[in-house]
Design a protein around this nucleic acid. Structure first.
Lengths: 188, 188
DNA sequence: CGGTTGATGTCAGTCACTGACATCGGCTCG
DNA sequence: CGAGCCGATGTCAGTGACTGACATCAACCG
């Protein structure tokens, strides 16, 4: 048996989400999160760079999933179609997570600092996708714009999925959003 | 003659931009900015909600310019064309500001917190544009997606303009970015 | 068995930010 | 003209996010 309870990060993330939900992000101190997780404030900040980051523990894995998926799409696909396939595939990531996503998103939209953090995570994701597209031979600004378009579709589709009742899968909303984006841009 | 030097906000914004450029955002304290502006730290925080906001004093005016312009575009235009016109018009806002924009953007891209703040300003802008489109009768998700597409074009075009030598106007870069976005989305 | 390691605790310190209260030149009103 | 209000600023004390330095100690390794 180890010296400490296992999965300190998991406990911190759960404690943080619960406290942020219960009393709000601003009204929660790092010390309170740590205490509920059975740790100290100092240890909290060893696991997470700041109070916001504890809600984004999975974003690195999500980015990796996006990049790996996009890198594996056959080269024959046009960039936007590769993005579409990527979105479709990564949507599976959220199949069993509607309730958790809803709770987490409610916390995030309620606080400006958390929204900022979410936006920069999406920007990081976009940059990673653009880099992957460039590795696939797509030139700029097409690579950047395709990646940004993909993230826009993800953002809009995700928001609609998370506010829905959870009956329809995320992939549906992403497909609809991409189709609608194609309509509004009118094509060239 | 008034009791204090006029234009406290202007002095704070200049002092902040200069200090952030000279020694970096993190290495600059609010007290130092205030001191260089001939004020106290407390007064700094009366003018700006936090250390980041001092770099975004003009964002409210920019958002207003975007919204007013978009609202005035003739109804006959398709949403994406109304956005194109809006971008073209608002670009004039930056005609004499290339050097200032360059310095400011250099500071922002060098720091994650400042990038976060910039992203949420753009998100706010996008939301305002979407609301304006809805007022023009555009339904969702078309309104949201058109606004997001417009902001993406602005972001990409602006970044290319700001890293350019300043010979070509922003409007050129925005036009090119929008055209390219139409190409990559392929239209529907 | 002794040394190393890694996750944690303890403690002191800096700085962003806030609330409460004081100051004082300019302006309004009588 | 004088009293009093007003608005921008100053002063001061306090909270909480975050950091660096150092201590602890069970597990692990040779």
């Amino acid at each position: 048996m180890s010296r400490w309870e296992p999965d300190a990060r998991g406990r911190l993330e759960k404690a943080a989400l619960d406290l942020y939900s219960e009393r709000g992000y601003e009204q929660t101190t790092a010390a309170q999160i740590a205490e509920r997780a059975g740790l100290t404030e100092r240890t909290f900040f060893r696991h997470y760079a700041d109070k916001r980051e504890v809600l984004f523990g999975g974003s690195q894995a999500l980015e990796q999933a996006f990049v790996d998926t996009l890198a594996d799409v056959p080269q024959v696909a046009a960039p936007i179609d590769a993005m579409a396939t990527t979105l479709e595939t990564v949507a599976a990531f959220f199949l069993e997570r509607h309730e958790h996503s809803r709770q987490r998103q409610a916390v995030i939209v309620a606080n400006a600092e958390l929204r900022e953090r979410e936006l920069i995570k999406l920007a990081s994701l976009s940059a990673a996708l653009a880099a992957t597209l460039r590795r696939r031979g797509v030139k700029d600004p097409a690579a950047t714009l395709t990646a940004e378009a993909g993230i826009t579709v993800f953002k809009v589709g995700f928001e609609r999925w998370v506010t829905d009742n959870g009956d329809r899968p995320l992939a549906d909303f992403l497909r609809e959003s991409l189709d609608e984006l194609k309509v509004v841009t009118g094509g060239g």
